[in-house]
């Protein structure tokens, strides 16, 4: 048991180290730029005085390491500085939007995870059948579609041709919960279509791999019923690979959200980030990038830890 604790602790340490390095890259990336970021953003026409003022505003007059620790310390306390574009507190801008993004991602996950797992397991169980081959072609196609293509097809179908859902998901704090769900359904469906294909292909591969193991053949040759073979022999060993598949795809979902938010004009973190990139509002981009990357790293860490905790060889050491 101590071995497993040690491994989990190691993963945690590694995860936090990664987060630390990621934050370094995100914050200090500007140092790698040849020349001056202030001049770069303001353009050549700026006077030396404006550049100097802007440098001060960015805090560039302070040495990088101090600036970094100030920023990191602020981040940890929820103080992310001010936006360059509209001078508002970034935490104010981001707080609500991050909540919206999570709401969208969770809705998409709630639809896609059960759907993908069911479809994937079925495809694996009925391998080489017509269903399996059809699913292979369909999913292969749908992972090839750009997210905005899927989104506009859906808009064209269910909000223009048959006006069932709104094509703009403009929710706010005041929107009632069920209204929110209704408005977020189309973006969520778009994400679902994109993620399900990936997730079910991976599930199928994991299950097929598992069903080919000699101990499954042995369970069959012991005359156990199909159901028992699956539940008692395949499932306990399938947990680790399936958890892995789910978490990887959740991480993917968090990122895939960016494009979908733009299409549906959804007030989420992704849209804020894209807007800020075109305005070159560096502090906001840094804060959003840190939140996206942090979620991504933490999800991967979770996958790692869960797969350790479900490995019988580690749970029952020699």
């Amino acid at each position: 048991m101590s071995q497993i604790l040690k491994m989990v602790a190691q993963r945690f340490a590694l995860g936090f180290l990664t987060l630390f390095i990621v934050s370094l890259i995100i914050f200090l990336g500007i140092e790698l730029l040849p020349g001056d970021i202030a001049e770069e953003i303001l353009g050549q026409s700026a006077t030396p005085e404006t550049v100097a003022a802007f440098r001060k505003e960015l805090g560039l007059d302070v040495p990088a390491h101090i600036r970094y620790f100030d920023w990191l310390w602020g981040m940890l306390q929820g103080d992310m500085g001010r936006s360059l574009a509209n001078k508002r507190e970034i935490s104010e801008l981001i707080g609500l939007r991050f909540g919206n993004t999570l709401f969208l991602a969770v809705t998409a996950a709630a639809i896609s995870v059960p759907l993908a797992l069911t479809l994937g397991v079925l495809a694996a169980l009925y391998r080489h059948s017509f269903y399996d081959r059809a699913v292979n072609v369909v999913t292969l196609s749908s992972i090839s579609f750009p997210e905005f293509f899927v989104a506009y097809i859906l808009i064209f179908l269910v909000s223009v041709t048959f006006p069932i859902f709104p094509s703009i998901a403009n929710i706010s704090d005041a929107t009632p919960f069920w209204d929110k769900v209704y408005k977020v359904l189309l973006p969520a469906l778009t994400l679902t279509l994109v993620v399900v294909a990936h997730m079910m292909r991976m599930t199928r591969a994991a299950i097929i791999n598992l069903l080919a193991s000699p101990y499954i053949e042995m369970a069959n040759l012991k005359g156990l019923s199909r159901a028992r073979v699956i539940v008692k022999h395949a499932l306990p060993n399938a947990l680790a690979p399936i958890i892995n598949v789910v978490v990887i795809n959740l991480a993917y979902l968090i990122v895939g959200v960016v494009v979908v938010e733009v299409v549906f004009v959804y007030p989420g973190l992704g849209q804020l980030m894209v807007d800020s990139v075109s305005k070159r509002d560096l502090p906001v981009v840094q804060a959003s990038a840190m939140i996206f990357a942090g979620t991504y790293v933490l999800l991967n860490l979770l996958a790692d830890i869960l797969s350790i905790l479900t490995n019988p060889r580690l749970l029952h050491p020699r």
Partner: peptide
């Protein structure tokens, strides 16, 4: 019908026991 016989009246011993035992039980 075959599953009824397998394990009870006919059984199988595989080449690699390490692979043929389920690691989870």
């Amino acid at each position: 019908e075959k599953r009824h016989l397998w394990g009870s009246r006919i059984s199988y011993v595989a080449q690699s026991a390490a692979a043929a035992f389920n690691p989870a039980h």
